[in-house]
Design a protein around this nucleic acid. Structure first.
Lengths: 174, 174
DNA sequence: GGAAACTGATTAACATGTTAAATGGTTCGG
DNA sequence: CCGAACCATTTAACATGTTAATCAGTTTCC
């Protein structure tokens, strides 16, 4: 099985018991996902950096390029950012005139966001390098394997979305 | 194929050309990895939160629990954190007396870090819930599939680690 | 029609990610 | 042996992640 690989006292520590039984965390799922993502992003960051873009700003611009207009909440969902992060980034992107924002007509709480002409130009400037990197990754890892990995990731995401988040029972110690 | 799904003008925008040819970014590998990881971490965060622990603090404690002592650089590698983050977190964990730190004997630049008795107690308090969550995830997604996913993630990581990071040629515009 | 409840967005506060610079300790070459 | 180069760690500065609080606009219901 090789699954029950717990950390025990290796029997050599002079300072006494120091180990707790637990999976080797370097092989935990969150770590594997984190490292894989970092390995991928490492490829893209230099290119984005040359255009003074962060990963999140790039996500927002791409999300905006795919639609005529959107609203902040919808954009947060699409770009997978939390409201506060998005709020700050939109402020900066607006100052750089890469996006435009106006208040909604029917509902004034809603902000209507869209990409600007400059924003589109920037995307066109970055896209070629970005696509080339993606192609290189695909070549190296294998297109079939990559598609399979994506499927498994989506399956995982959907598996867990249905899972109740244990709220840790009555706090007896507080 | 279904792979060349580019974003084109859907032919309905009244405001003119607004689309740039590019893969639908919501299906990009970085986004898939990010969402999958978030789905997983969402399960763990409440439990950690009940013990006043962040995800990164937990990573550090677990990494420390697996060894007698370590050094900051080595710990950064193990817990997959950058030096500056680690530096701050170690300061806080030390203040909470969950870890201990002393200067190296041979080389005084190196700090020798270890987990404290309190730190070990905390791990023992959190581990059961943590393991239970991991078990639930495994049950839901399938042990076999999970192992396969991990293999594919590691393969991806190693594929890319050998890949040159394109440094974007001569900056003609600067 | 107006107060209470609700909703979308922003602000606040604190922790981490990320790159660059600074700080101290160590090693190496002359 | 001493200054330059190097190395481990921390500090600095700014951007994002995360939760809670705030704020303005909207809806509900009496």
């Amino acid at each position: 099985m090789a699954r029950k690989q717990l950390i025990k006292n290796s029997g050599s520590g002079p300072a006494g018991v120091r180990r707790v039984p637990m999976r080797d965390f370097s092989r935990s799922l969150p770590m594997s996902l984190l490292r894989a993502r970092e390995a991928v992003m490492r490829q893209f960051r230099p290119s984005l950096r040359h255009h003074e873009l962060t990963e999140q700003q790039w996500r927002i611009l791409r999300a905006l390029a795919a639609v005529e207009t959107t609203e902040v909440t919808e954009l947060a969902r699409t770009a997978f950012l939390l409201g506060p992060s998005l709020s700050r980034i939109l402020r900066d992107l607006e100052a750089r005139q890469l996006i435009e924002r106006r208040v909604g007509e029917a509902d004034q709480r809603r902000a209507v966001v869209s990409i600007s002409a400059d924003g589109l130009k920037l995307i066109e400037a970055v896209a070629p390098a970005s696509e080339a990197i993606y192609a290189a990754i695909t070549r190296r890892y294998g297109a079939r394997k990559l598609a399979e990995l994506q499927d498994m990731l989506h399956a995982l995401e959907h598996s867990l979305s249905a899972m109740e988040v244990a709220e840790e029972g009555p706090e007896a110690e507080k």
